[in-house]
Design a binder for these strands. Sequence first.
DNA 1: CTGAAAGCGCTAACAC
DNA 2: GTGTTAGCGCTTTCAG
Lengths: 353, 353
Amino acid sequence: MNLTLEDIGRLAGVSRSTVSRVVNDEVSVSPDVRTRVWEVIRRTGYTPNAAARSLVSGRSGVIGVVIPSRVHSLFEDPYFPRLIQGISAASNQQNLLLSLFIFQSEEEESELYPRVVTSGMLDGLIITATRMGDRLLAQMTFSELPIVMVGRPDIEGVSYVDADNVGGARRVALHLCSLGYQKIGLIGAPTSTTAGVDRLNGFIEGLAMSGQVLHPDLRVDGDYSEASGYLAMRELIPRSPDAVFVASDTMAMGAMRALREAGIRIPDDMAIAGFDDMPAAQTSMPPLTTIHQPVAKTGARSLLLLDDLIKGIVTRPTAEILPVNLVVRESCGAHRRSAEVDLGLVEPSGGKN
Amino acid sequence: MNLTLEDIGRLAGVSRSTVSRVVNDEVSVSPDVRTRVWEVIRRTGYTPNAAARSLVSGRSGVIGVVIPSRVHSLFEDPYFPRLIQGISAASNQQNLLLSLFIFQSEEEESELYPRVVTSGMLDGLIITATRMGDRLLAQMTFSELPIVMVGRPDIEGVSYVDADNVGGARRVALHLCSLGYQKIGLIGAPTSTTAGVDRLNGFIEGLAMSGQVLHPDLRVDGDYSEASGYLAMRELIPRSPDAVFVASDTMAMGAMRALREAGIRIPDDMAIAGFDDMPAAQTSMPPLTTIHQPVAKTGARSLLLLDDLIKGIVTRPTAEILPVNLVVRESCGAHRRSAEVDLGLVEPSGGKN
DNA sequence: CTGAAAGCGCTAACAC
DNA sequence: GTGTTAGCGCTTTCAG
């Protein structure tokens, strides 16, 4: 049998409003009443009823985290676990509850989405891994529900948190150029994703800063999968680049597999750099030079931004770009080729990136 | 501005009670009224307010999933992502929402737990990875909240879903014995976990069925970590077992590393078998013979059992043990040593296990 | 088959 | 400072 404010009030000899004030830490309660009430609450183990509370306050204290149906890499890759861990850590700290929506199909997605958004059971939404041209997303934007996206969306007016894809890719280009590579190729992420676009642009920018250009022949795009990296590299091999930036570590693993098969040594015959700094980047042969992005922090910052949006501390669409940093390992031959290395390793993360 | 039952009633020319009946699919509504009301609902995009609904019904439609603070392997290992994916799939299907609690510290744990349990915002709880002697768990058991544990708990009276650890370990022992190994060792999981106990017992059982015993010298326990597997194997090497069952794949990776270091060939000089069938088991050198457990299914079954408990379809503590099966790869030399192999490969999963 | 009315437990004016 | 009073939007008797 569950206690109510009324019960506590009776036990403490005050009215339910006073108990409510005590529970909500309002000022206008005399110290002795306050302690008396807390004592009863402690003794009885009373907890406010969440439903009643949110019915009247219009707030649930719950935020939703959406993982769209098309994400099937949920298990292969620690990205989502890490992200969720970051969101969870922040939400525990902010006293928010976290409701997880993993959609298995577009059907589930389009069925659940509207119901959840309008039922009032969520104070806000964190949406991950949206793709360009996402309809539901555009729809959501019109709802009053505060939303934060993880990763830059392709529409205006939505708040988001993202890693500095442009800066990271630029940094890789500079690194490769400074090591003396002259014929640098790209295995790109799909330009149907904003990350793909940003990494491409940053890369081109970095090359330009070093007086180089990306030759169209030396660019093949993949789809983030290991297999696509493999295939892309097979296409690139005959054109003999001396270095290739692979815009995701997973694809880089595929690219390296193709190289191994072809008997091309890394970095002696060809340098490889990745992006993401997944665990596999440390254990690959050779260990992969790549861009580290702070995934858990991305999650935490999204939650915090969402909370600000909910509380009205932030009122207009806000973007937060988190700095990334270059992790120099062995796949670019940095240790052998140049003194840039030491700088690269020591450089404080997120400098000019 | 959000619509209420009253609004819909006005628009459809009926009372709010009637609209409520329509929404909740009650029988006693005339067909034409029913269609008229649905039409208005569809047109307006009305969704019932979750808080109001759960205030009066005492049900929230939300179930909590708890991952205790001591789980730090959340990111290394796809176990939890898979489990959650399974739970999520089932909860979407049952029209339940899933609230995720990842505790970062025991403090958070003991602070949040009671509040969440008594606030009425959860209809039930799935608790993962409990350890023996868990206090909070014992406490929870006394609350009215329906609970399902993932993995056998060490106390009575709690419903749970678990993989058949006993049967799986037994199966490994039989496999090893049938291949002719005579001096079979064990790197055990900690016996402070029920899985550790069960795998130990199953293993001993399987040996016994083949007329062998586990010599105490050939048993060293680890703590599920890669490092502990490595250390345990270093201890075992001088005692020269001809085969070792390592009670988790992660530990098996460590054990294999120790063997590689010592120049001991697998399976020529020593056979290794694991448990869990993690992705790494497929790509290790050599690929690891191990026990596959259905993780996503474990999650789904927990949710379904919990739902039954909530609905009162199941009223007493229930255990569900999911069958596991042996996956024969190369680390035990099955293909070379015996005809048992073909049987092993073809055997329908979950047979006598 | 449908409507009126009561109340779930809480917060937030509004009085005192 | 504290109590009284209205609801929040819904389900659920109880009449009709």
